[in-house]
Design a protein around this nucleic acid. Structure first.
Length: 193
DNA sequence: CATGGGATTGACT
DNA sequence: GTCAATCCCATGC
């Protein structure tokens, strides 16, 4: 198989599995929006059964999207400043999603530099708020299908099949911090700080 | 209806 | 190391 052929787009069925599996398997896949894309190097899983998840208190107006069908996007505003991008996992009616926390920039690097107001490759997508700014993902992209909409995820390319994935505890939360639900591409220089 | 906090970032001491 | 920005939304009266 040649890596010159782009990897297939992930369908909704990829996300119709336990959210922790989905989070781990998204490492090495490619997030694409228009001319910009990057390799996913850091993710976190969130599930309605633990208190750090927005779905913990049921389908409130904000968390409603989390209970939608697998493969639906969940975008919300953090600290009144940053849009954070998630993809809903598990069957419809279960509140669970994977937060994308960092990418290794691939295409459209100049566009990312302009949107971010930063030049360093390591400053473009190395955080959940940074990658949405670099890829121009905002609240208007909440609740759309990752399998058919303008934002897509491509399967892990052959060259990355041997990628080593590390697990650790989630970052930036105060509840359920003991769960090892953060996944990273081992030794990637593009992880969040 | 009023209030408080947050799955972050960047600037500054 | 500290801290403000900025606003949606969950909660409580």
């Amino acid at each position: 198989m040649s890596d010159c052929v782009s990897a297939p787009r992930l369908g909704a069925e990829f996300f119709d599995r336990p959210v922790v599996e989905v989070a781990r398997d998204l490492i090495g896949c490619t997030l694409v929006h228009g001319p910009t894309s990057g390799t996913i190097v850091e993710t976190e899983a969130y599930h309605q059964s633990e208190a750090a998840c927005h779905a913990y208190r049921g389908p409130t107006p904000r968390a409603r999207t989390l209970f939608d069908s697998p493969g639906t996007t969940y975008v919300y505003l953090s600290y009144g400043v940053h849009s954070l991008f998630n993809v809903v996992a598990e069957r419809e009616g279960t509140g669970a999603a994977v937060l994308l926390r960092a990418l290794a920039p691939l295409d459209g690097v100049q566009t990312m530099r302009r949107r971010r107001g930063r030049n360093g490759l390591g400053e473009l997508c190395s955080g959940p708020g940074k990658l949405t700014q670099a890829l121009a993902i905002g609240l208007k992209h909440n609740g759309i299908g990752i399998a058919t909409g303008p934002i897509s995820i491509l399967a892990r390319p052959g060259a990355l099949q041997g990628l080593r994935v590390a697990e650790s505890r989630r970052i930036g939360i105060s509840l359920a911090t003991e769960l090892p639900w953060r996944f990273t591409a081992a030794e990637s220089p593009f992880l969040s700080k």
